[in-house]
Design a protein around this nucleic acid. Sequence first.
DNA 1: TTCCAACCTGTGAACGTTCACAGTGCGCAA
DNA 2: TTGCGCACTGTGAACGTTCACAGGTTGGAA
Lengths: 338, 338
Amino acid sequence: MSVTSARRRPTIHDVARVSGVSRGTVSRALNGDPYVSPAALAAVRRAVTETGYVVNRNARSLVTQRNGTVVMVLSEPQEKLFEDPNFSLLLRVATRRLAVKDVALVMMVAGDDGDRERVVRYLRGGHADGVLLLSTHAGDPLVEELEGLAIPAVACGAVLGREGIIPYAAADDREGARQMTQYLVEQGRKKIATITGPLDTPGGLNRLEGFCDVLGRKATKKLIVHGDYTRSGGEAAMAELLSRAPDLDAVFVGSDLMAAGALATLRVNGRRVPEDVAIGGFDDSAVASSTHPPLTTVRQPLERVAEETVRMLLELVDGATRPESIVLATELVIRDSA
Amino acid sequence: MSVTSARRRPTIHDVARVSGVSRGTVSRALNGDPYVSPAALAAVRRAVTETGYVVNRNARSLVTQRNGTVVMVLSEPQEKLFEDPNFSLLLRVATRRLAVKDVALVMMVAGDDGDRERVVRYLRGGHADGVLLLSTHAGDPLVEELEGLAIPAVACGAVLGREGIIPYAAADDREGARQMTQYLVEQGRKKIATITGPLDTPGGLNRLEGFCDVLGRKATKKLIVHGDYTRSGGEAAMAELLSRAPDLDAVFVGSDLMAAGALATLRVNGRRVPEDVAIGGFDDSAVASSTHPPLTTVRQPLERVAEETVRMLLELVDGATRPESIVLATELVIRDSA
DNA sequence: TTCCAACCTGTGAACGTTCACAGTGCGCAA
DNA sequence: TTGCGCACTGTGAACGTTCACAGGTTGGAA
């Protein structure tokens, strides 16, 4: 606190001097080594607060080869991702959980090749202990590069084709889709269509499979349209669906955001929801309750997904053992749209 | 690429050995020092690609006292912030701009005291070259701590009370509010109310001032209600306004998200928009065009704000001179709600 | 008493850079 | 020829840690 203290930040040497012990003892005290006498520990503690010492992570990383940093890689065009409330939630929870463990989160975008090269360079430089993958598509070249780097990586949602390699936490998309489709059937809907997410994402693929599980042969190609998880994508897909099958009476939409778009298209085309057409969403994100009518949807426990992903990553980083992937149950949330 | 290469990452020594020059020359070559012979430069370049060398930032930072990292501090309850499309946009643009300059962006939340302490500790440890402040409220204790640390800091939107100290880039909130209010008056609206943002944020305060600039004595307390930039906050504020002044015929809402909420409340209460009540928003964010009816709003050039903020921060980090704050013009965007 | 383990401490080396400094060689003017 | 500046190069030291190792004390068992 002394006003006269120079610009220079205090180092471990300063702490050693002030506390009257050696550098090594200070280091041990700070890192919780059991072989430190109570007296020394107290002296160090006092000296630390007195000097305002904070460990220099660069120096530490240099020798430990660890840096208390993980990278969150967004391998999706940014515009799309940031529009998605699921992403916000994932980001929010992950930041917080990591902060608690004193791990810094650096965000990197891997939209185009240049971006990806930057990410790889950053990781290759050893500046991060691990990677958090978000919404990675099947066949993303980044995944292969990551494997080459042999850096701990964990994904939110499976990376299709790499399920055995990159551990993940995810909601049970397939079962969730079954729940919703089954519900629509039980409501007496006869002609049920679906708007899927991209088929190179687990959410796109698995939810479609769940849909087909229930509908069997009734799930004809005509009633299946693919969207891209955006609101406008949902609008377009719904329009397509209406032109293909004007008499449909229910649609299972692969995400709430797309469902909101679908809702808008239905309104424009004079269809009442749920009287004429029932809409089922997926996610139970914030948009679900703010549409008109509010969406009947499938809740996926994204907070838990984020928490588990972080836990797994940290585990992978310090432990040797590869953590088990984990699939979490979904829950049908009934509101007014179906 | 050799399969036999050990786990160890190549260092500058490896590059020196392979290229046949000294450590120092490699360093110079890599850092663009002019005193490097063409031959040496070429040899180093070749060796770098051959070995796959990437500089170790920790070692570099240790000696240069710089680390190519800036922290984005979110000093707002996360839930609120992540709901806000403005925030997403700012984050997106900033990440990208920094990435281009090879500066890593670490996100830190400073919601409660514990969070704040972590942020300060991180910064005090010298792990970041600068700080990007987002939506900082007047009187936020973090700001003072930042000043104590003497770390380069720049804000998106002014930090009220610190305008002279922390440079910022922002939209011209006051003028934007004037444009909108003036427009509502010109449309023949007689009883115009407003829903503001929090008054300890520049957007809250300045937009209210712009509103009052135009309306003068007509801007009575009864017609002014404060929101919190969330959708639900907008709903509540609108309800309050309706109970205070059931005959109002226009509302200038301080953000699009709140406007969307206000719209919902109006619908519930049987008011038609814009026939019975005109609604003016602020931001021109994505929600503005997806409400029903789409919002007439004030566009603030947030991409530019983010770009300029990043530019200023980087300038502040390497230059000595304190960059000028910058205020950007807004633009009225007329859609259907007014 | 002697010895050994358990506890605690200090010290030198290493991590991978950059920086400052001391050269070296060369061309050109004196 | 000598000298001088310029272009370029190599080397030691430093950045602030942690780690491994080599002790030094102490207390209790043999």
